[in-house]
């Protein structure tokens, strides 16, 4: 029973990260109807920036928030510079550019900061909660919830948040009510990059920092977004926790999976959910009368 409880808790802790990344994925998807395959690499690069600032002597929280701001501006710039000319380009062009970004960020990180594995500090104290779950994991959990709350309030209660939703749902009409649609997309990119940065900085203490750290995690982030329903931030977070728990349970109780085939769990989850429940478990179906 203890093992079971611990697995659930570990699952929730891992799930918090997947949830974080899934939030970023959903954010971009809401804005531009695309999966950003470079989300993981962008988050990894942000984490390196934070690491460099801490190594340069800045206190953790200063570096943390500076990284969020830099990532936000970076995401904004990527949209304005690279994606703006491609707004009406075919899907393939977008995928090509995403892949290009993956290659660029991955390679640059290695070239600037080398490929050696680095440790990354946690802002939370050492130790564990009742011997079941590390305090860093607990902190991570609350950071994710805080992030979700912030996003929820942003979309629900701010003018810009509502305009962003409108611009994503119907760009033509959004322009007609005076929303600057192009900037809303850029804002979506900026926010996604900032959220991704938080995810990267939160997970780096656990998986250590190296250029390929995010690939597998991004896969789980996608799985979380798909399981939760790609259209809702709340669903993405719920999906994240669910995927985290499923991953741990499968690893513990199905001997064939163990700790070695966890990525396959994500693959199976993604394909299964896409096939049988394309809107996700918590996705809203939109009712439209014709």
């Amino acid at each position: 029973m203890d093992l079971f409880l611990q697995q659930i808790l570990t699952g929730i802790a891992n799930g918090a990260i997947y949830a974080c990344l899934a939030l970023a994925v959903v954010m971009i998807y809401q804005a531009i109807d695309h999966f950003n395959f470079a989300q993981g690499e962008m988050a990894m690069f942000s984490t390196y920036i934070c690491w460099a600032m801490i190594a340069g002597g800045l206190p953790y929280w200063v570096a943390f928030f500076a990284t969020i701001i830099i990532s936000f501006i970076g995401g904004l710039a990527i949209e304005r510079i690279i994606f703006k000319p491609l707004h009406s380009a075919p899907v393939l062009s977008h995928i090509v550019v995403f892949i290009g970004l993956v290659a660029i960020f991955n390679s640059l990180a290695g070239a600037i900061w080398d490929h050696n594995i680095k440790t990354f500090p946690s802002p939370f104290p050492d130790g564990s909660f009742g011997g079941l779950i590390g305090l860093h994991e607990v902190g991570m959990f609350f950071v994710t919830l805080l992030l979700l709350l912030a996003i929820f309030c942003f979309f629900k209660f701010t003018r810009v948040g509502m305009a962003m939703q409108a611009a994503a749902a119907n760009p033509a009409s959004a322009g007609l009510v005076g929303i600057r649609v192009g900037w809303m997309l850029a804002l979506g990119w900026g926010l996604a990059a900032a959220i991704g940065a938080v995810a990267g900085m939160m997970i780096a203490p656990i998986v250590f920092l190296e250029p390929n750290m995010m690939l597998g995690i991004l896969l789980y982030g996608f799985a979380a977004a798909i399981v939760g329903g790609i259209s809702s931030p709340g669903g993405a977070v719920a999906g994240g926790f669910l995927v985290g728990i499923i991953e741990n349970m499968a690893g513990t109780y199905i001997p064939a999976i163990g700790s070695e085939l966890k990525l396959t769990v994500a693959l199976v989850l993604i394909v299964t959910v896409l096939l049988f429940k394309p809107n996700g478990l918590f996705g809203k179906t939109i009712v439209t009368r014709v």
């Binding site: 509502m162 939703q165 409108a166 749902a169 119907n170 033509a172 009409s173 959004a174 007609l176 939109i286 439209t288």
Partner: peptide, 11 residues
Amino acid sequence: VPEGRGTFVRM
């Protein structure tokens, strides 16, 4: 007022 109304259907 655009052709086909263009309301934000989910809101």
